[in-house]
Amino acid sequence: MLGEGIAKGLAETAKNFFGSYVSAERMTTVEYPEQRIAPFEAARVFPFLVYDGADWEAGLRCVACQICEKECPPKCIFIVKSTEKKPDFVGKPQFYPARFDIDISVCMSCQICVEVCPFEAIKMNTEFELATVDRFGGLLLDRKQLAKSNEYYRQIHPTEAAAVDARLATEKAKADAKAKAAAEAAAAKAAAVAGEGA
């Protein structure tokens, strides 16, 4: 019958229209910015640099190995390696980034830098309200703007951060044990030398 298909379709739209009054599930929109949907834990926007402790400059995990700079697909990372070394979290002397800039107008949030980083130094942020009127300087973040504490990382990606912390703790324990063993061996050797001398 002519018009049957149209009537069927209209019944469907009527169902949807009245359904939106009775079913909360059908109200699919939120009034941003007054209402917000909490971001998913896996959400990623732009990278940041993780630091341990209270001082961001001393605690940066980054050792300026420049792997992320090489692997970055749109080449938005710029690193200048330091000339001198400073001790990292296990006490091993390492270089640090004298300059670490990320141009977030170029970054495409692919998180390949996070994957290739061997030092758990760069992670993805979830902050997305980054609009600025300065499209050049305002979107070129330097290492001070990029540095975020490990507590912040734990807050935005709890599961991932817990795994990272556990891994770093075992590494540190291993390094400590090795250092202790080395110190003991050195002490024993020194004692032996002293014994011989006597």
Binding site: L2, G3, E4, G5, I6, K8, G9, A11, E12, T13
Partner: peptide, 14 residues
């Protein structure tokens, strides 16, 4: 099913 009822036999669409 809903999509099909809404569109598949719609005379104008056909």
């Amino acid at each position: 099913d809903e999509f099909e009822r809404l569109l598949a036999t719609n005379e104008i669409l056909m």
